[in-house]
Design a binder for these strands. Structure first.
Length: 678
DNA sequence: ACACTTCGAGTTTTT
DNA sequence: CTCGAAGTGT
C-alpha cells in the first residue's frame, strides 16, 4: 500500500515509534512542547491510512476543542475520513454511550445532566430541609458541600476522610455532610438526573457489570487513544481499562509534570500506574522540545527540577534564542497592567500579531485590572477560563424552559422558572414542581392554576413539542415567554438579551434538543469568546487572557505570567498543604512552558485591599517562592535584585513588611516619571 | 406563611 | 460580585 504521507520525514525517531506502533498498550511520556499532539494527529492519520475504519478509533481528550483541532489536522495531512474518528471528552463520550444503553441499567434515556451549579442547588434544598441554616456554628456553604461530595466520589474515599484532609474546619459536620451526600444521591435518581461525576461512574459500572456491552463496545472501539492522561482520575482509568478489554490497543499520552487537576480527583500516579493495569506496556519518551527557545527551556527545566517528586526528564531543544526570560517588579496591579500594554505596543511594532501573545494567571479575577485597561485602550482580547456562557443567570433561565420539556422530572429547572415569577417563592414552586413531575405533563391543565404566570407557563409547555418542532423553534417559544421576566428582573436586560440571541444562533446548528442541552453543559461555550465574536469578527487577532488551567496544551510567541507572588501563584489556598503546593509549582511550570520566544514574569509589589484580603492581610506582596529556588534567579534578567533579596522569597515574613514599605518608597521615586511618559 | 429586601462577609483551578 | 441569614412586608 502506498502512503501519501512521509512519516519518517515528519517525525523524529521516538515520535515515529509511537505513531507506527499500533498494537498493544503504549504509554507516551511527553514533555512540554515535545510534539505530543503531533503524535496523536499523525497516529490517527496513520491508522486510517492503514485501512482502519475511522469509526473504530476513539480519541479521548480533555476538551472538545482539542479533539476537533486534532481531527482537523489529521484530515489536513491525510483526508476527510479522519473526521469520522470518534472523539471528545470522557464526559461527552459517557453521555453518548449512556443514552444508547440506558434501558440496560434502568436509566431513563432522557436524563438531565446537572452542571456544578445545578448540583449545588439540589444540595442547597436538602440543606434547607435539614434546617442547617439555623445553626450557631458555621456550616459549609453549598458549593463547598458539593466539592466535598464530588471529591469523595472521585477518589473513592469517605466524606469524613476528605473533610479531615482538606476541610478540617468542618470536621464536626462530617456526619451531616455524609447524610446530605446520601440524600443527594437519592434526589438525583428521583429527578432522573446525572451530575458530571455520575456520567463517568455510571459508564464505568455499565462496562463493569454488563459483559456483553463491554465486549461490544470494546470491539467497536478497537483503537483507543487518550490525551492528557496525567489529568485523568481513577474512574476514567477504569473506563479505559474496561473499554480495552478485547484488544489492549491503547495509547495514553501525558506528562506527569503537568498534572494540575487533583482538585478533580486526578493524580499523576495514575499515569505511572498505567503499565500495571496494562502488562506489556511499551513506554515511549519524547524529550526533544520544539516549542521554546533555549533560555526559556533552561528556566522551565529548573522549575521542574525543584519539584519534590520528579521523574527524570530533561528537555532539550535545537531552537536557539537570545531573549532570556524577564522578571519584572511593578509597583502595583495598575503598573503591572500598564507594563503589559506598553510591551504589547512594542511587540506590535515588531510585527507580532496580538493573537500570538497571551497573559496567564492563576485565578479568573486576577486579570480584572488588566481587562479594564485593555478595554479603555481599545485592545481586543478574549478571555478563557472564568465564567462560562451558561453560568449567567439569564441564559440558565432560558435553558431551564427547554430542560423541563426534555425531562419533566427536572426539579432544578422547574424551581428556576417558577421562582422567576412574582409572588412565587421556593415553597410554592416546590409544590408545583412536585405536581408537574408526578403527573404526566400532558395531563396538567393550565386552568388549574390561579397565578396568571403559572398558567401561561403551562400553556407554553403544552404548546411546545420537542418531537415535532426544531430546537430553534422551541427556544423561540421559550424566549417569548421569558422576555417579560427578563425585563422585569434586570436593569441591563438589553445586554442580556444579546446573550439570548447568541443562544439562538447556537441552537440553529442542532436538530435534537437532547443533544443541544447535553452539549451546552458538557462543552459550554466560553462567555467572552461569544462576546468577542460579536464585537470583533476576527478574534484570531485578539490578545489572549487565560487561566493557567485553560492554557494547557496551547502555546504563544510571547507569554506574560502575572501576579507571580505569594498568595496568587502559589495560591494562598495551598499554603498549608504540601501536595497542593507541589501542584502550584506544576502550574507555574505549565504557565512558563507555554512560551515560544518571549516570557515575562510580572509581580505587583502591592495589590488592592480586596485582593490582599484573599492572600494575606497586607497589601504588600512577597515574590513567589518559586523564583527563589535553585538557579532560577540566574536565568532571569531585569530583576530588581535589591527588592527581591530584601524580601527573602517567601521566608522572613516578619521583617518584610517594614522593609517592603521602605523599598516601595524608594522604587516609587525612581519609576514614577518613567511610567508617566508613555 | 411565605416572599422580598437588605446588609455583611467571603471569593481557585473545570468537565 | 454572590451567597446566605436576618429583618420587613404582604
Amino acid at each position: 500500500m502506498l502512503s501519501s504521507i512521509d512519516y519518517p520525514q515528519a517525525l523524529n525517531e521516538q515520535q515515529l515509534n509511537a505513531v507506527t506502533s499500533t498494537r498493544g498498550p503504549h504509554l507516551v511520556i511527553a514533555g512540554a512542547g515535545s510534539g505530543k499532539t503531533r503524535v496523536l494527529v499523525y497516529r490517527t492519520a496513520y491508522l486510517v491510512d492503514q485501512g482502519v475504519d475511522p469509526h473504530q478509533i476513539l480519541l479521548l481528550t480533555f476538551t472538545r476543542r482539542a479533539a476537533n483541532e486534532m481531527l482537523e489536522r489529521a484530515s489536513a495531512i491525510l483526508d476527510d475520513r479522519c473526521r469520522n474518528v470518534s472523539g471528545g471528552t470522557f464526559h461527552s463520550f459517557a453521555n453518548t454511550i449512556l443514552r444508547q444503553y440506558a434501558q440496560r441499567i434502568d436509566l431513563p434515556r432522557n436524563f438531565t445532566i446537572l452542571d456544578e451549579a445545578d448540583a449545588a442547588s439540589v444540595i442547597q434544598r436538602i440543606r434547607e430541609e435539614k434546617g442547617l441554616n439555623k445553626l450557631d456554628k458555621r456550616f459549609p456553604r453549598k458549593d463547598t458541600i458539593s466539592a466535598i461530595i464530588s471529591k469523595s466520589v472521585n477518589k473513592g474515599t469517605d466524606v469524613a476522610d476528605i473533610i479531615c484532609d482538606e476541610y478540617p474546619q468542618f470536621l464536626q459536620w462530617s456526619e451531616m455532610v455524609q447524610q446530605i451526600k446520601n440524600d443527594y444521591m437519592i434526589r438525583k435518581r428521583e429527578m432522573d438526573a446525572l451530575d458530571f461525576d455520575d456520567l463517568l461512574i455510571v459508564l464505568r459500572n455499565l462496562l463493569d457489570t454488563k459483559e456483553d456491552v463491554r465486549r461490544q463496545l470494546s470491539r467497536r472501539y478497537a483503537y483507543i487513544m487518550v490525551d492528557e492522561y496525567q489529568d485523568t482520575n481513577k474512574v476514567q482509568a477504569e473506563i479505559v481499562r474496561l473499554l480495552a478489554c478485547e484488544h489492549d490497543n491503547v495509547m495514553v499520552v501525558g506528562d506527569d509534570s503537568q498534572s494540575i487537576y487533583s482538585f478533580r480527583g486526578a493524580h499523576f500516579r495514575n499515569i505511572l500506574d498505567f503499565p500495571q493495569s496494562f502488562p506489556g506496556t511499551r513506554v515511549v519518551k519524547l524529550e526533544e522540545n520544539y516549542r521554546s527557545s533555549q533560555p526559556i527551556l533552561d528556566l522551565t527545566n529548573e522549575v521542574i527540577l525543584c519539584a519534590r517528586d520528579k521523574f527524570e526528564k530533561r528537555l532539550f531543544t535545537r531552537k536557539e534564542g537570545d531573549q532570556r526570560p524577564v522578571y519584572r517588579d511593578t509597583l502595583d496591579e495598575n503598573a503591572q497592567s500598564n507594563y503589559i500594554i506598553n510591551r504589547i505596543q512594542e511587540l506590535r511594532q515588531e510585527g507580532i500579531a496580538l493573537g500570538e501573545i497571551a497573559v496567564l494567571f492563576r485565578s479568573g479575577w486576577h486579570s480584572n485590572d488588566l481587562e479594564v485597561k485593555l478595554s479603555s485602550w481599545g485592545i481586543p482580547f478574549v478571555k478563557y477560563g472564568g465564567h462560562k456562557f451558561l453560568e449567567s443567570a439569564h441564559v440558565k433561565d432560558a435553558v431551564s424552559y427547554l430542560r423541563i420539556l426534555q425531562n419533566p422530572s427536572d426539579q432544578v429547572s422547574w424551581m428556576r422558572v417558577l421562582t422567576l415569577m412574582r409572588g412565587i417563592g421556593s415553597k410554592t414552586a416546590l409544590r408545583i414542581a412536585r405536581d408537574a413531575a408526578e403527573k404526566k405533563l400532558s395531563s396538567v391543565n393550565p386552568g388549574d392554576f390561579k397565578n396568571v404566570s403559572v398558567r401561561r407557563l403551562f400553556e407554553f409547555v403544552a404548546a411546545a413539542d420537542p418531537q415535532a418542532q426544531s430546537p430553534a423553534e422551541v427556544l423561540d417559544l421559550a424566549l417569548q415567554f421569558y422576555y417579560p421576566f427578563l425585563m422585569d428582573r434586570y436593569d441591563d436586560y438589553d445586554k442580556r438579551a444579546n446573550d439570548l440571541e447568541s443562544l439562538q444562533r447556537i441552537v440553529e446548528r442542532y436538530t435534537s434538543l437532547e443533544q443541544f442541552l447535553a452539549d451546552l453543559t458538557l462543552e459550554p461555550p466560553e462567555k467572552s469568546v461569544i462576546e468577542a465574536r460579536r464585537h470583533n469578527r476576527q478574534n484570531k487577532n485578539s490578545l489572549v487572557l487565560s487561566t493557567i488551567h485553560s492554557a494547557k496544551g496551547l502555546e504563544w510567541d510571547t507569554v506574560f505570567v502575572i501576579h507571580v507572588c505569594e498568595g496568587f501563584l502559589p495560591s494562598y489556598r495551598s499554603f498549608e498543604d504540601q501536595d497542593a503546593m507541589e501542584e502550584e509549582r506544576r502550574l507555574f511550570y505549565v504557565a512558563t512552558t507555554r512560551a515560544k520566544r518571549r516570557l515575562y514574569l510580572l509581580r505587583p509589589q502591592a495589590v488592592s485591599s480586596r485582593a490582599a484580603g484573599a492572600s494575606n492581610s497586607s497589601p504588600y506582596t512577597r515574590v513567589s517562592r518559586f523564583l527563589g529556588e535553585g538557579r532560577i534567579l540566574d536565568l532571569l534578567v531585569d530583576i530588581e535584585h535589591r527588592h527581591v533579596q530584601a524580601r527573602g522569597f517567601g521566608q522572613g515574613h516578619a521583617r518584610q513588611d517594614r522593609a517592603g514599605r521602605m523599598m516601595l518608597a524608594d522604587y516609587f521615586d525612581r519609576t514614577e516619571s518613567a511610567w508617566d511618559n508613555w
